[in-house]
Design a protein around this nucleic acid. Structure first.
Length: 439
RNA sequence: GUGGCCGUAGCUCAGCCUGGUUAGAGCGCCUGGUUGUGGUCCAGGAGGUCGCGGGUUCGAAUCCCGUCGGUCACCCCA
């Protein structure tokens, strides 16, 4: 007898039970519906790329986290750890076919060999969307609206999208003389809400040697949070007269104006001077979305403008702005794992043992042609067991065709919620079931 | 990758500190009461390598070590 192999999964990789898998599919479907409503079209890229594509010029952190190995042909390869780098390669390779501006979305699995936590896995799904080839502020604004609409479409009630712009931070850093340490400063600033102003101040002093005055100036900006004009005024004060920062502030003002105009509730989009994003490739707007009821899972969506998107792969200038949805983080927040397995079909056809049951398949096909989801119970078990199955799996209607019904050319239609039963001619089943399901 | 906590039935957990006869509970699941009718109720039942491996001991779910997995913090990030 062969030895049994213990069934198990790798750290950070997981199976999804049907209840969770259904939730994930719904989240993804909601996001895609919104993307398409804005005109984004799907793209796909391979999971495995040449390692040099994924690492070239990248930070050492991502290099450490990337799954990489040599394939059987001796190629140095790696699994993609985000969707932005593959997008950059893809755009550089295909932009002449696509033309600009190009709106694309990419929902796919990515892999990172980092330590796990709730909502943090080594294999997870992201849903990126980007506009490539335009520097218009309208694209920046649209990107935030997409995030908003996606979260609404997913049924998330309470969330906050925090928005800032790198150009303001850059202007501030230039003014106070910290521009050469911008990457370090931004990395430290990004932790503000987690570690507090004091710790950030200390880190700035220790890591980049910032003076008390420089620290105070930086913190002055990062403490500004809110949906209103006074925050923008504050941004203008810190930024001085820097032209890029002025443009950024104007864009942010237009964003808030648009949000109001389209009826977005004020607390869902706020300006936040502390949003920096650790990644140093952002060049303009930056944003992060948080679920108000689940702050511990971190940002469930983030993004911004990166105007040198594809510069590693082409000399052509390709500005881009977009966002990345953390599907599995949203899932971790939304999924309580409580539900038992539910059928995807509202109707269950029960089966008696008086014939081979093939006629049930024909009946099911008739209902499906009418757009009604049907599941056929395969075994002639006790009718009570079959109805219990229907109950447990959430079927709303059970069809019963026993010897009596078959003899009379009828079908008994049972509404599970009420227990009501009607017997109808077989020819009328579609209408009867449709009526019960409010179709 | 570093450190803390956790890992007992399908699920949530008790038992572990102070090793000792057949390892428990609730929920779920199955069967019967209802020879063609679920959800309530009643009666009964199945189901456990105590994550895995090793060690200490006459004896380990219980103590020790390792390992795998989960979780939290750091780091980083979706």
């Amino acid at each position: 007898m062969a030895e049994i192999i213990t069934p198990r999964t790798l750290k950070g990789f997981r199976d999804l039970l049907p209840a969770t898998a259904i939730r994930r599919e719904r989240l993804i479907a909601a996001a895609i519906a919104v993307y398409q409503r804005y005109g984004y079209v799907p793209i796909e890229t391979p999971a495995l790329e040449y390692a040099e594509i994924l690492t070239g010029g990248g930070g050492t952190e991502t290099d450490k986290q990337m799954y990489r190995f040599d394939d059987a042909g001796g190629r140095h390869v790696g699994l993609r750890f985000d969707l932005t780098v593959p997008l950059a390669r893809y755009i550089a390779q295909h932009i002449d076919t696509l033309g600009t501006p190009f709106r694309g979305y990419h929902v796919a699995t990515v892999w990172r060999g980092e330590n796990t936590q709730r909502g943090r896995y080594r294999e997870f799904v992201q849903g990126d969307f980007d506009i490539i080839g335009t520097e218009s502020p309208l694209a920046d604004i649209e990107t935030v609206l997409v995030v908003h609409d996606v979260l609404v479409a997913m049924g998330v009630d309470r969330f906050t999208i925090r928005v800032n712009d790198r150009r303001i931070l850059n202007a501030l850093l230039a003014r106070v003389g910290l521009e050469r340490r911008a990457v370090d400063v931004l990395r430290i600033l990004d932790k503000l809400d987690r570690v507090g102003a004091e710790r950030v101040g200390n880190d700035l002093a220790e890591t980049v040697g910032a003076s008390r005055a420089q620290i105070d100036e930086v913190l002055e900006l990062t403490m500004r949070v809110g949906p209103g004009a006074e925050v923008l005024d504050g941004f203008a004060d810190v930024a001085g007269g820097d032209a890029a920062a002025v443009a950024a502030i104007e864009m942010l003002g237009q964003l808030m104006e648009t949000a109001t105009a389209v009826g977005i509730s004020p607390n869902r989009i706020v300006l936040d001077g502390s949003i920096a994003r650790g990644l140093d490739y952002y060049t303009g707007i930056v944003f992060e979305a948080y679920l108000d009821d689940h702050p511990q899972v971190g940002a469930c969506c983030s993004g911004g403008r990166y105007d040198d998107l594809a510069s590693r792969y082409t000399s052509r200038r390709l500005p881009a702005v977009g966002g990345s949805l953390g599907v599995d983080r949203l899932l971790a927040a939304v999924d309580d794992g409580a539900d038992a397995t539910r059928s995807a079909a509202p109707v269950l056809i029960t089966r008696f043992g008086d014939d081979d049951g093939v006629d049930l398949l024909a009946l099911a096909a008739t209902l499906r042609r009418a757009g009604i989801g049907v599941e056929v119970y395969p075994d002639p078990d006790r009718i009570g067991a079959q109805l219990r199955y229907a109950d447990r799996h959430g079927h709303r209607v059970a069809l019963i065709i026993g010897p009596d019904e078959r003899g009379a050319g009828e079908v008994k239609v049972k509404t599970m919620a009420t227990g009501d039963e009607r017997t109808v001619p077989a020819a009328d089943v579609v209408a009867a079931v449709g009526g019960m399901l409010d179709l």
